[in-house]
């Protein structure tokens, strides 16, 4: 089945492919960081007692979750330069798109994590004389973090896979770089199988690690 394929082409284009991998990693790292920060802000707003704030965030989250990520990428790719009035590199437009998109998912995970802590825990903490802030810090958040960390990590692995969608705006991540080589030298099989294999190994190992973490720290 694999006769006639030349896997040496991978070695020949290694530097080019490596740059693609770097871009994928960069984009993922920045998007995860930005998404988490924004996600925390959104979750806090969603849990606050200020109703309009909570509704606004709920609307934002539901809205972003109704749309395909590709469409969101197109939106920000065309919008960001228009809004800032200057030409913005594709990388930054796409990064903003990813941050805004992932923050919606992260905020839901964070909100669920905090809500999953039993109500009685807050009562018990406050009955001892702890202030709201102390109760949050020593009783609620430690438990919430244990619950939500595996889910947040899993979502980040999903994010790593989602970055491949930058293909639609031509950003040279791992997949797009491989695609460029594949089209140029007419060797799709070797390139795409390589990309698939790398993702498979990385994501599978990462998921296994997350599972082990979950088992160790489950409450």
């Amino acid at each position: 089945m694999f006769a006639g394929f030349d896997f040496g082409i991978l070695w020949a284009n290694a530097p080019f492919l490596w740059n693609g991998i770097l871009l994928t990693l960069q984009l993922t790292a920045l998007a995860v960081t930005g998404g988490l920060l924004l996600g925390v802000v959104l979750a806090v707003m969603r849990l606050s007692s200020v109703k309009p704030l909570a509704w606004a965030v709920e609307g934002y989250v539901n809205f972003l979750r109704s749309m395909p990520l590709i469409l969101v990428i197109f939106w920000f790719y065309t919008l960001v330069p228009k809004l800032t009035g200057r030409p913005v590199s594709g990388f930054y437009s796409v990064l903003i798109a990813f941050i805004m998109f992932e923050a919606a998912y992260y905020s839901e995970i964070i909100r669920a994590g905090i809500s999953s802590v039993r109500r009685g825990q807050i009562s018990a903490a406050m009955a001892l004389g702890l202030t709201r802030l102390q109760a949050m810090r020593y009783v609620i958040l430690p438990q919430a973090l244990r619950n939500m960390t595996p889910v947040l990590l899993t979502q980040s692995i999903v994010m790593l896979q989602d970055t491949s969608l930058v293909y639609v705006v031509g950003l040279r991540d791992f997949l797009t770089s491989a695609d460029i080589v594949a089209s140029r030298d007419n060797r799709p099989t070797e390139l795409y199988m390589f990309v698939a294999l790398v993702f498979l190994v990385v994501c599978f190992s990462a998921s296994r690690l997350v599972n082990r973490l979950r088992r160790r720290y489950a409450l």
Partner: peptide, 15 residues
């Protein structure tokens, strides 16, 4: 509250 002690039906120990 620090002068009032409370014991709950579901114990509510911090897990």
């Amino acid at each position: 509250r620090s002068r009032i002690g409370m014991v709950f039906q579901n114990f509510e120990l911090f897990p």
